[in-house]
Amino acid sequence: MKAPLIVVGLVLALGPFALTSQSLVNFAMLTVVSAFLGQCWNIAGGFGGLTSFGHTIFFGTGAYTAAILQTRWGLNPWLALPAALVTGSLVGAAIGAAAFRAGLRGSYFALVTLAFAEVFRVLSNSLDFTRGGLGINIPLGMGAGNFQFADRRSTYAVALAFLVLATAAAAWLKRARFGARLAALRENEDAAAALGVNLVRTKTIALALSGGLTALGGVLYAQTYLYVDPAISFGVERSVEMLLVAMIGGAGTVWGPILGAIVLHIIADVSRSWIDTPGFAPMLYGVVLLVIIGLLPRGIIGIWERWRA
């Protein structure tokens, strides 16, 4: 039962290394990055019900961490990975501590994260430290030692490694006490507290974990496109895509975000070949989300669950 799925998964994951078409490799890379970011959102939003609408805060934090470390202090970009893990977690912990201490949840938490993302965008747009609206150019210097790859397949490999890492974290949540506590407080906060779950601490750690991982995605972006600016880093579109990928696939499940990313990117690509109007893809995303919420509240993975039950 499981063996064929594993084979399909391996073929899909390793296939792009054998491809020579740059556009196909690019498609695979974007899909994997999107799956990774969705999985990061899923860790807080899916497992813990911390439905963030501003997860790009962490992505942008990671991107700026990478850009600033190199351009201001001349550090090797590989160091940006551990650094972004730290900055992303810290930002997550700070926002979590503030929001959860105040007892914000559900749509209030969603609004607060949306507002924080906007604050980050405005700040990065006006501060000298982030070079304001000009953004930061990362000097070209191709080479693996410099974390800049001429071949998209190398970028794909890094993204795949990130996806494996985030999915391993999700699988761990599914099994471990921490994940059980997250799921419990998602379902019912009072009951979880009565049974000994420290709500503020558990939620804050979840957001910090999710934030730290998400920031890795920002580093990869910065190293791939060699440019970051406020809109790229803290624009609302990326936040929406992250939660969309998780919810379409199945929030709170280990494989949902991966499935969601594949489906969403195929839809986006196909639709682009039909209608090349800018803004058509996001509109289509909205339709897909409505259909999913209406027909499959547990996401695409819900079909599989229903079929198995």
Binding site: R177, A180, R181, A183, A184, R186, E187, N188, D190, A191, A192, A194, L195, G196, V197
Partner: peptide, 18 residues
């Protein structure tokens, strides 16, 4: 106040996790 989306065993297990 059950954890409605979880199984009965998972509900009880949360207590045991303390």
């Amino acid at each position: 106040q059950p954890f409605a989306g979880l199984t009965v065993l998972e509900n009880i297990r949360l207590g045991a996790f303390l």
